[in-house]
Design a binder for these strands. Structure first.
Lengths: 217, 217
DNA sequence: GATTTATGTAGACGATGTCAACAATGATGA
DNA sequence: TCATCATTGTTGACATCGTCTACATAAATC
């Protein structure tokens, strides 16, 4: 039978059927690949379409716009980051250790998924106004915020029942440090001996976070 | 006399003479302005040329290419950042206070110059290989590094004569925290009540750094 | 099996980055 | 003073890109 029913065909360069199977996912994959090769600036919808083996206007059936593609990638990134963070904290009892575990996982995520991380924080990507719907869907809504809420909770557990402001301060600080470290590493601005491999980067994060317990103890 | 000898004419929309006067600087200004309006992604050499009142290919007499323009902006940013950091630390005696002053100034710089800051750390901007010259010019060379060296020294003064590794660790941490904070603020990811104005952002940085003295002193 | 909906194609448009050929200006040296 | 020449702008062209409209095909629904 020439008919391939199991034709999910993620990255099908050559397909037989008129329809692709899962073009949306293929385009996302192609985009991430492309960015990895040529940088964010080198991303082109047409090239994504080419790599997915599809005509240049096909992507517009799945993404309103180039920015919508980027936004989808960012969303994918935030989901993965949230999952990674949860996994890293699982089973760690001490609140402070949990917070550190999240920080280390954050940096590790960044060096393991540099493209996702960069797209996530390149901004210029704003959620388009929901137009008609005031409540688009509370669940799929703000994956950006989930990662932060997680951190917020972890930080609150460390600070204790102090003022809410102290909790927020701790959360912001506990996010800033790994975030800055990750960004600097990705930009190649950390001396090469300290973070040339993912493992070294993780080590560096661990050391810094351990040393930085500071007022939260 | 119709001849205006003082025709430096920075942002001359309409110029009389064939030559512009200081096109290079005008283009840089226009580029920063454009990025502020439309985002990095909306920067276009042709629009810069238009705003400088010059033909679309004129910029190529001053910049090899679009990336070269960005690189020039980044360089300008690092110079300003270095000056800002030096000024902030001037007269502050206590090593730890000096380090904090640098951190606060760093964040303040970012919120005061969001375009410069973003261009500086957008990466994808690599110094082109010097081709022939092995030593391009030690002074104009690495303004990226000056800002970091400054920090390195300030951190070393706090840590003392400990191992060099401890100094580097402190420097990386002391850079990561303000850098991450600045990035998150610029991305609008810090709760609005905490950093909606430059002054609030500076306050936030001050509080966090004060609280984060941690292992240093 | 007919109709509707989802998905992909073809072609066009204006804008962009970049290059090559040409023109005007200002500096240099006889 | 004037001819020469390197700088700096201008024009026009090309390939590519994002995006739109009109059309074609497959899949789903009745």
């Amino acid at each position: 039978m020439s008919r391939q029913t199991s034709c999910v065909a993620r990255s099908a360069r050559s397909r037989k059927s008129y329809h692709h199977g899962d073009l949306r996912a293929s385009l996302l994959d192609a985009a991430v690949e492309l960015i990895a090769e040529r940088g964010l600036h080198g991303l082109s919808l047409r090239e994504c379409a080419r790599r997915a083996g599809v005509s240049h206007a096909a992507p517009y059936r799945h993404f309103a716009d180039k920015d919508a593609l980027l936004l989808a990638i960012a969303r994918r990134g935030f989901e993965l980051l949230t999952r990674t963070g949860v996994a890293a904290m699982r089973g760690v009892e001490d609140p402070r250790d949990r917070l550190d575990a999240y920080g280390v996982a954050y940096v590790r995520f960044a060096v393991d998924n540099p493209v996702l991380f960069r797209v996530m924080f390149t901004a210029e990507i704003e959620e388009p106004e929901p137009e008609s719907e005031p409540e688009p869907e509370p669940e799929s809504q703000d994956h950006t915020g989930r990662a932060f809420e997680l951190l917020m909770e972890a930080a609150a557990a460390v600070v204790g029942e102090d003022s809410e402001q102290a909790q927020e301060l701790a959360a912001v600080a506990s996010w800033s440090l790994p975030h800055g470290l990750a960004m600097l590493i990705l930009d190649g601005r950390i001396p090469a001996e300290q973070a040339s491999t993912p493992d070294e980067a993780e080590d560096l994060a661990r050391k810094i976070l351990a040393q930085w317990r500071g007022p939260l103890s």
